[in-house]
Computed example of a mutant assay.
Amino acid sequence: MVASLQEWFDVEDSSHLRRRTRRLLARISPDLLRQRAVRAREASGLRRWVDEPGVDTWLGTFPSEEACTAWAAIDALAQQYLADGVCPRIDRARAKALTDLVTSNATIDVQVVLTTPAGTPDSPPTPSTGAPTDLVEVRGPAAGDPLLVERGWLERAVAATAVTGHDRLGRPWILACDTDTGAPLDPDGDLTTSAYRPSAKLAAFVRARDRHCRFPGCTVAARYCDLDHVRPFPAGPTSAANLACLCRRHHRIKQRPGWRAVLHPDATMTWTDPTGRTRTSHPPDQLHPIALPDTGTDPPPPEPGNPSLVLPDGPHSALEHHLEHADPTTAWSCRVHITRPRVPMTLTALPRHARRHARVTGTPPF
C-alpha cells in the first residue's frame, strides 16, 4: 500500500493523500472501511458545555448527508445576514443562523424564576434596571457555570412568565432564598410530605437548589443523583430541609460507619469523615447574581480569520464553491444548490488561488 502511494508523497498535500488512501483502502478492503464509517456514523452526536463567560460551546458530528443539507441552509441564511448587516462576520452569522433555524422549527417555552430574600413580602421583586445590552447572570436548567445573558432577553422572558405566575412544574415563579448563602428555601414547609418518596415538585426543588452532588468536590449533575434523606426516614422528614442530592458513589459512602453528614437550615452541608476531618459543601448562590453594565467601552469585534470566505460584492461564485468543496479525482460528489440571484463577477474579483486555477485549467470563473 505504501508503494502505491509513494509517487504522490512529493506531489500532493495531506488532505489529498488522505482521500487517496481511503480510496485505496476501499479497493483493498471495502468491508474494513465500511465498518469504520458505520461506527463513526453511529457515534455521531451533539454535546454542549459552558465556555467563556456569556457563551456556550457545541461540539457535534453528523452523518454526511444530514450535515450537507443542514450546512447549506445555515450558510445561505448566514450570507443573507451578512448582506443585511445583521452580523459583521461570517462565523458569527453562521452561529446565529444555526440557532435561528433550530428555534424557528420548535416550540420554545422560556420561563424564569425570580429569587428574593426569605422573609420579605410576597410581592414580586423589582428587577434591577439597566440597558438592554447589559449582561446579567442567570442559572440554567442544567448543572454548570452560571450563564450571562442580555438584560433585554431576560426582561422579555420575565414578562412572559409573569403572565402565568408559575413555572412548568407548577412552582411559584418567585423563590425565597437564604440571605447569606443564596440557596432556595421552603420556609413554610409547603413541599413537605409524609411519604418516603418526595413529590415531583419537592424533587425538582431540591435538584434546582443543589445542582450537583453535595459531597465536597463532587460535580456529578443533580439529574444523575439520588435524593437522600440526610437524617434517615422516618426519623428525618421528607422535606427540603432534609433532602440532598448525592451521586450513587457518595450516597453509599455516607452510609458507611464513621461518616456523618448534616444539612443546615441555610442549605450548607457539613461532612465529617472517619478521621474526624470536617468539610463543608455550599449550595450555588442564586440570590446575588452578577450584572455587567454596558458602559460603551466594549472592544471592537475581532477581525475575520479568513476574509476571502465572503466576497465584498456578494455570495460565492460557482467556481469558488467548486474549488472549496469538489474533489476532481472522485467520480461522485455531493452538491446542494441554494437558489440565489446571480451576481456578475469578473476574474479580477476572485481570490488569487481562484484566478490562478482558472488560468491554468481554462475553467471559466462563472
Rank of each mutant, 00 (worst) to 15 (best):
R252L: 10
G276N: 07
D273I: 01
W173F: 03
A241I: 02
G85M: 09
G305Y: 08
R168M: 09
R207W: 10
Q35C: 10
M345C: 12
D51G: 14
V110C: 10
V55P: 00
E65C: 02
L33T: 13
L114D: 01
T280G: 02
T280K: 04
P232A: 15
P312S: 07
A195H: 12
V113D: 15
T103P: 00
F233I: 02
T193W: 00
W49R: 13
L309I: 03
L292N: 05
S317P: 01
I253A: 04
G314L: 09
F366H: 14
A358M: 05
D109N: 11
G362P: 12
E7A: 13
R18I: 07
P293W: 05
H316L: 08
Q80H: 14
D285P: 01
T361K: 08
L33F: 02
V163K: 09
E42H: 12
I28T: 11
S128P: 04
L17S: 06
T272L: 02
A106T: 11
P265Y: 10
I253M: 09
W153G: 01
A195T: 14
W332T: 13
P146Q: 06
R48D: 03
T120R: 11
A160V: 01
T339M: 03
L287F: 07
A176S: 13
W173A: 10
L5C: 02
Q255T: 15
V149D: 03
L243A: 03
R249P: 00
H337L: 15
A106Y: 09
H316T: 06
T272Y: 02
C334G: 02
I174H: 12
V262C: 06
L246V: 04
T329G: 01
G119Y: 08
D210A: 10
D298Q: 14
G152M: 04
P234D: 13
D226N: 13
A326D: 13
D84Y: 00
S194A: 11
P127R: 07
S104V: 09
T164W: 01
A76W: 13
T133E: 13
P301E: 12
P184D: 11
P124I: 10
A143R: 01
L350F: 03
E52V: 12
T116F: 00
V2N: 08
G314E: 08
H288P: 09
P364Q: 05
A3C: 08
N306T: 11
A331Q: 10
A26L: 11
